[in-house]
Design a protein around this nucleic acid. Structure first.
Lengths: 247, 247
DNA sequence: GAGTGGTCTAGACCACACG
DNA sequence: GTGTGGTCTAGACCACTCT
C-alpha cells in the first residue's frame, strides 16, 4: 500500500470526492450535461453508492448539480440573481411586481405571524398565495398574511376565494401608505406544499424571507416567502440594478 | 400488521420521524436538553440508524437541533437575529461595527471577486480576515478584499501582516466617501478554514453574503461573509431595529 | 476507557420518468 | 419495461470528548 496519511488530518472520502467532482465539473463538463448515473460513478471511484451520494448532495446544495428522480444528474446553470426589493417602498402587488396571485383564503396564521401582526392568535386573516416565476420556472412561493383591519374595503367584496380575490386584497392594500419594510432571511426546508409548487422534494433547502410591511405605526401585513436555495441568489441592491458577481 | 397505507402518498419513514421528533421537541423538551443517543433513538422508533440520522440532519438544518461529535444531540435555542446592516451607509470597520479584524494578507482574490473589483485577475489585493462574535460565539467569518488603489495611504505603512494591519486597511477605507452598497445572499457550504473558525464541520450549511462597496463610481471593496446557517437569521431592517418575528 | 456522533459498506427495494 | 435517483437496512470502524 505504500505510505498513506500524507495529510495531517485524513480527509473523509466523500469530501475528497466532492473536490475531485467539483474540479471535473469546472473543466470537463458544460451546463446541462448529464453525468453518469450514481452506480457507475460510485464504481468508477471505488466507493459505495451512499458515499458518492454524500458528495453529490453537497454539490447540489451549492447549486452545482441538479438531480431528478427518474431522469439523472445534470450540471446546473449558475444561480439566478433574484431581486428581493424589486419595487422599493411599495406594497406587494404594485405594478412591476414579479409575483402573481394564485389563491386567497381566510385562515388562522401561524402563531409567530399572529404575534407580529398584533392580531389575536386564532383569529383568521386573509392569506394570499403567490408564486414568483423566472424564465418560466417557479423560483419562489409566498403566503401574504393580511388582517381584515388592513383592508377595510374588502368587507363589501364577496368574490369566491381564488386568484381574483387575492388580487382584490392586494389592490386594497395598495391604498394604504407604506411606512417601511423589515426583512429577515434564514435557511429552512420546504414544506410539502411549497416543495410541490417549486418542483422539489419535501425537505429541500430553501431560503425563507420574512417581510414585515409597516403602515400607520403598526404591522399591516406579513409575507413568508420561500425561495429555492439551489437555484436562487437573493439580491438586495441599495443602488440601481447593477449585476453583482455575475460568475 | 393491520391495514397500512392510510395516506394517499406513502410518506418516507424519515419524514414521518422528523414530524414526530419535531412535535416532541416542542412539547417534551427544553432548550439545551440532551436527547437520547442515535442508537437508542433508532431502536426506540424501530428504524435503522441511517434513517434516524436523515431526520436529525433536516432538523439540524432547520436550527432545531445541535449535534456535536463526542458530546451528543441537544435542543437548539431559537436562531439569533443578526443585523447585516448594523451601520448603514458606512464602511466596514466604522465605529459600532460588530466585526473584529484578525489578519490581513496580500493575496490573489477569487476570479469572480477580481471581476467585480475591476482589477486584473491574478493581481493581489489586501484580504482582511474578520470574525463576528455574538454572545461569545463566532457566528460569521468574512474576507474583505480591498485593492491597493482604494487605500493609497497604505503604501507608506509597513506593519507586519496581522490584525493591526487589517485595522490599518479599514482605517484607510473609512477616509473614502461611500457611494452605496449592494448585497446578495445565497446558500453555501463552509470551507475547511471557515468551518474551523465557526466551530462546525467542513461542508456545514452557511449563508454567504456578498457585499459590494461602491465609491467614486467604482467598486472600492468586496466582502464575502459566511454566516452559520443553523444559528443565524439575517435581518435587513429598512427602519429602526424593531425585532422581527421573535419566536 | 466509555460513549458520542461521523463515515463507510454492500446490499435491497421503491417511486418516478421516459420511450 | 428499463433506467434513474430516493429510501432503507444492519452492520462496521473512526474521530472526538469527557471522565
Amino acid at each position: 500500500m505504500g505510505t498513506t496519511r500524507l495529510e495531517t488530518v485524513p480527509e473523509p472520502k466523500y469530501r475528497h470526492l466532492k473536490t475531485v467532482l467539483s474540479e471535473a465539473l469546472d473543466s470537463e463538463f458544460t451546463v446541462g450535461e448529464i453525468l453518469p448515473n450514481e452506480r457507475d460513478l460510485a464504481a468508477r471511484f471505488g466507493v459505495a453508492r451512499a458515499t458518492l451520494r454524500q458528495a453529490l448532495e453537497q454539490l447540489e446544495l451549492e447549486g452545482r448539480l441538479q438531480r431528478r428522480r427518474g431522469v439523472g444528474t445534470t450540471v446546473a446553470p449558475p444561480r439566478v440573481g433574484v431581486d428581493v426589493n424589486p419595487a422599493r417602498h411599495s406594497w406587494p402587488g404594485a405594478p412591476g411586481d414579479a409575483w402573481q396571485a394564485e389563491d386567497c383564503q381566510e385562515t388562522v396564521p401561524p402563531a409567530a405571524v399572529a404575534r407580529t401582526l398584533g392580531t389575536d392568535t386564532g383569529r383568521p386573516v386573509y392569506a394570499v398565495q403567490r408564486v414568483r416565476m423566472t424564465h418560466g420556472q417557479a423560483v419562489a412561493t409566498e403566503t401574504l398574511y393580511v388582517p381584515a383591519a388592513s383592508v377595510p374595503g374588502m368587507s363589501g367584496i364577496e368574490t369566491e376565494a381564488g386568484a381574483a380575490r387575492g388580487r382584490a386584497v392586494l389592490r386594497e392594500l395598495n391604498r394604504l401608505e407604506l411606512g417601511g419594510q423589515e426583512r429577515a432571511v434564514e435557511l429552512g426546508s420546504a414544506r410539502a406544499e411549497d416543495a410541490r409548487r417549486l418542483d422539489r422534494l419535501p425537505g429541500a433547502p430553501v431560503l425563507v424571507v420574512t417581510t414585515r410591511y409597516l403602515a400607520a405605526g403598526g404591522t399591516a401585513a406579513v409575507a413568508l416567502s420561500t425561495y429555492r436555495a439551489d437555484t436562487c441568489r437573493l439580491t438586495f441592491g441599495d443602488s440601481a440594478g447593477v449585476p453583482l458577481l455575475a460568475g
